[in-house]
């Protein structure tokens, strides 16, 4: 039996807007920029492994920013690293999203007072979409952040400017 034989007879037709379809496609294949900075990266790797399996959200690690849609800033952003992160962000194709994972990337974390070498929040160099708190966050918390980001992508519009 051919693949398309009964495709339309069984009612497998649905109507949607182009916007919904595009958003659904994009939020279901958020390719991830593959890099980690500190202990949060270990939790991110745990989230990639079989127990938590972020690939079921369509998140596949890509080794180049040009193929990535979302960047997990997982760990302490040092001032030396900040310019590199900025450059990687600039190399990502739009639309692009940032998940700031853990206290260090959110606000400097334990280095907020005496960390002469730590950027106090990655949002000082790149715009952040979702902040995941924790030190480090459990993989479940990262999954929650991914779901929040998917909700954000689902609400996007081709014509309306974001608020």
């Amino acid at each position: 039996m051919g693949l398309l034989d009964q495709r339309f007879e069984n009612g497998n037709v649905f109507v949607t807007s182009l916007e919904n379809l595009l958003n659904w496609a994009r939020l279901s294949s958020l390719y991830q920029m593959q890099f980690g900075l500190a202990c949060c990266a270990i939790e991110m790797m745990a989230a990639s492994a079989s127990d938590f399996d972020i690939m079921r959200f369509g998140i596949i690690p890509r080794a180049t920013p040009r193929q990535a849609d979302v960047m997990f800033v997982a760990g302490t952003v040092t001032l030396k690293m900040a310019s590199r992160i900025k450059r990687l962000y600039d190399q990502m194709a739009e639309p692009r999203y940032i998940i700031s994972m853990g206290s260090c990337a959110n606000c400097g974390g334990p280095y907020w007072e005496h960390g002469y070498h730590v950027l106090k929040g990655v949002d000082r160099v790149i715009p952040v979409d979702v902040y995941v708190p924790g030190c480090p966050p459990r993989p479940e918390a990262l999954l929650e952040g991914i779901i929040k980001l998917q909700e954000k992508v689902r609400k996007e519009s081709l014509v309306k400017k974001p608020a």
């Binding site: 001032l79 900040a82 400097g108 002469y116 070498h117 106090k120």
Partner: peptide, 28 residues
């Protein structure tokens, strides 16, 4: 460890944290 254009030696007791590094604000 530090970038080559860093000024000062940060583990000295009299080290002052800079206000800015390459346009990025350093203090919280």
């Amino acid at each position: 460890l530090l970038p080559y254009d860093w000024e000062g030696h940060p583990l000295r007791k009299d080290y002052q944290v800079p206000e800015f590094y390459n346009g990025m604000k350093v203090p919280y």
